[in-house]
Design a protein around this nucleic acid. Structure first.
Lengths: 344, 344
DNA sequence: TGCCATAGGGTATACGTATACGCATAATAT
DNA sequence: ATATTATGCGTATACGTATACCCTATGGCA
């Protein structure tokens, strides 16, 4: 038909065709109950026919709500520029879905931590609230978080749900997960369990996982050896290096709990290179259940986080926050996925 | 100091403090040359002090440009709900970065193909243009693309850059990539090369890869055997099934070119299960260079696409399109990553 | 000296929607 | 029958910015 790309219809056009005033159109489409059923139906029909869409800008400007959430990824700068933590990517799907379900748009930006944090504040202007996602040095952005709080910016964070965490936090039960992993290793007869991952308060989540491991060991009458804990950030290289250092130390160990799958995969490489058999000599457990965990040889036992619920909870919590409803921190249970790397 | 969370400052506030009118503030901040340097500097200083940010909604409403691009992922519905093609995710980073660089926001949405395509049109209302990303049945959304064109919606697409493709397309040189793969396999002495992947026009990209393979074989005096081509969609299961079917057919082959890494990984599993040695009995090449390709055993030779440039080109092309500048389809070169699965 | 171009910036207004009010009409209560 | 309250909708206006247009002062030039 080639109908001319008629200018975008406005609520006035609809109003004219329906023989009502513009505000009535607005009310009808937004579901105000002070519009008669007949009028509303008529307006909706015309709107559909004209392919009418509410102008988001005008609507937001007037109502002062953008109906948009901002998702901020922040990570420590890595040499591997283009890589995004696969773990967070897997949350993206559920966050998007949940936003759509709740009628919100999702604005995305990636940030290097060293960047001007002002962007977060800026983003808070083009969205009703922010979701913060990132592994990284917690101490580094602690002050930035405080700044956001001071600015009264609405946000939720994925991370360690500890008492001193700033702002509203949703996270896995990292301590519990550490215990799950520890108990499993103990069950299969391991006694000297190493931990690969930063255990300082720069990485509260890793710290919690280590704490869980220690608790499991103590519960079984074992005492964790601090010398078997090695710092590592979440990357294959870092895991490889940490495992090599551990091997070089000469200390004996028969199991490794890695704070992330990437660390575990790096460690597996180092162990294999050193001639250790997996899992006979060293059993190993990772964290995150990234797709690659099922492709390594041996396949990697790991702790799965409930990403689906995570995304939903983050969005829900933020929306409640926006409505000034009471909202509490959420702790999500985790699940141990047993694979070959702990199959004895 | 606890300065009260003063209401968001507007350009009027800045104007008042600077002793000028509101439009002057607008002009100064947008870089109009009809503002004296001194005035501009003063305005910028005050704006910074007040943490002023231009209200996107008001700005967009007035100028009728949103300075936002929408990214639409669409995929065939898979049983594995939460998964997103890792290949596209890796493009996300560069797209985001490029958007930020060009001063655009990025709005994200995921779509199942069977969903009402109207959303794409809707998204076109809240953004200046759309980037379409997705593997899937091309014929299925062909008509939808035509609809977008008819609506005069500005968009770019990642996909097969063939003559009949609709709208502006950016994509890898799939035919060239197929030739690269084919030549490499021939170089290492393989003569009967199978292809796993849909070769119909429902998947133009796969079709192109197959065409490239055939061309390489013909160039070497070999004739491709149609019986060695097996349909598969981009998933491990599908690759596994296709490879099993191929094995079951009893036809001899000494190499496989898979249309995606996921297919290749599934095929490797099937081959191993059938007792074929990789790469001695069967050499195999994948496509995409997903992270997992480096973790399989043997590690997987694959074709790497230039995702970084891809994102940049997509954004650039779309922006040129928005400015009504001439813009052509882009074909990106690919690179063969040689690993153990073809190391003889 | 008179004229005009130019720089610099003010005035008025439009963008499209949402909401506070007000005002009928009709339904109900007294 | 009058007072009261809902119902359904129109009127007026605000949201914060960008831009078309207009005005003033200055300097250059003949």
């Amino acid at each position: 038909m080639g109908r001319q790309p008629s200018a975008k219809p406005t609520s006035f056009d609809i109003a004219y065709l329906a023989g009502v005033s513009q505000p009535t159109v607005s009310r009808a489409l937004r579901g105000s109950k002070s519009v008669s059923a007949a009028t509303r139906a008529n307006i909706e029909r015309i709107a559909r026919e004209l392919n009418y869409t509410v102008d988001k800008n005008a609507s937001s400007l007037r109502s002062q709500r953008t109906h948009t959430l901002a998702l901020l990824f922040f990570e420590d700068p890595t040499p591997d520029q283009s890589m995004i933590n696969p773990f967070f990517l897997s949350m993206l799907g559920s966050i998007t879905r949940q936003c759509a379900l709740r009628g919100y748009d999702l604005l995305i930006s990636f940030q290097q931590m060293h960047n001007d944090w002002h962007v977060a504040y800026q983003d808070s202007h083009r969205s009703d609230g922010i979701i913060l996602l990132g592994y990284g040095d917690y101490q580094l952005y602690r002050s930035k978080l405080e700044h956001l709080v001071e600015m009264d910016t609405k946000f939720v964070r994925w991370g360690s749900v500890s008492d001193d965490s700033i702002g509203l936090t949703v996270g896995s039960d990292n301590v519990g997960a550490g215990m799950q992993a520890g108990r499993h290793l103990i069950e299969i007869g391991r006694r000297t369990i190493a931990f690969l991952g930063d255990a300082s308060d720069h990485a509260p989540e890793f710290q919690d996982r280590y704490a869980g491991l220690c608790r499991a060991m103590e519960g079984a009458g074992l005492s964790p050896d601090p010398a078997l804990q090695r710092d590592a950030v979440s990357s294959e290289e870092s895991g490889h290096a940490a495992a090599r250092a551990l091997l070089a130390s000469g200390r004996a160990f028969d199991a490794i709990f890695a704070a992330s799958d990437l660390i575990a995969i790096g460690a597996m490489r180092a162990l294999t290179e050193a001639g250790r058999r997996l899992p006979q000599d060293v059993a190993i457990i990772g964290f995150d259940d990234i797709p690659a965990a099922n492709l390594t040889s041996p396949t990697l036992t790991t702790v799965m986080q409930d990403m689906k619920s995570a995304g939903e909870l983050l969005v829900d919590a933020l929306l409640r926050r926006l409505d000034n409803l009471p909202v509490e921190r959420s702790i999500l249970p985790t699940r141990l996925i047993k694979r070959q790397s702990t199959a004895v």
